[in-house]
Design a protein around this nucleic acid. Structure first.
Lengths: 112, 112
DNA sequence: ACTTCCTGCAACCCAACGGTTGCACGTAAA
DNA sequence: TTTACGTGCAACCGTTGGGTTGCAGGAAGT
């Protein structure tokens, strides 16, 4: 599980890399599923802008939508967030190993 | 500590949200500090492109540079990666709480 | 039926992004 | 002192990004 090609991961980070979009994600996280117009209220941009952002988030599989009567509710998909977090941890771990390798090389006098 | 305004976090995600940049970060994580030309070797883009990407990464405080003679070595700053990961965890946690709140509301019959 | 509210689509705009090329400058090696 | 290598700066280019406005179509409410 959690194979997640680099390209897909980059898409996730790209989706999170915009202030408006990130605030939408935060809001969904804090107050649960909401419609586009609900999200637009309180935001400093148009509903249409929010809609576009939601499409980007959905393309990155960070949100899911569900038609609820005449309105559309968008909800977070936390699995993607967790995947992204795991990816970051992997890089950090690799870096720490690299550092340790370097330390050993530096501290050992040349063998010959 | 680790206050990290949303804007700064968005910058970090933005920096990670490009395939070339993400591959640079991965490579720095796996093989340790390198110069721009070293990173350009093996990549499918020009050294100048890599340089620009490194500037973006540095602006997001994801990398640090150190002048080493005539060349410049770029190194990962894992603290930022960890901050970003913590941010994601926070959102996931908030979402889970929101879900739990919803469950309780749904399962309780209306009080009046 | 009529009105209200939320959504969806399309056109359009400016700014920023990712990338390239060309050249000048310092530092290291011959 | 040449020669070679790594870097820095600037101009330029096509494409995409974030955002807006305007309007048409359906589901709810009265």
């Amino acid at each position: 599980m959690s194979k997640a090609s680099s390209a897909a991961i980059a898409d996730v980070f790209f989706a999170l890399g915009d202030r408006t979009r990130l605030s939408v994600v935060k809001r969904l996280g804090e107050r649960g599923a909401q419609s586009a117009t609900a999200l637009a209220g309180g935001a400093s941009v148009t509903r249409q802008a929010i809609v576009k952002h939601l499409q980007v988030l959905e393309a990155a599989r960070l949100v899911t939508y569900e038609k609820r009567g005449r309105e559309v509710l968008y909800a977070l998909d936390t699995r993607r967030l967790e995947q992204a977090g795991a990816f970051l941890d992997g890089i950090s771990a690799g870096w720490d190993r690299a550092i340790e390798r370097l330390r050993q090389i530096v501290e050992q006098p040349p063998s010959d």
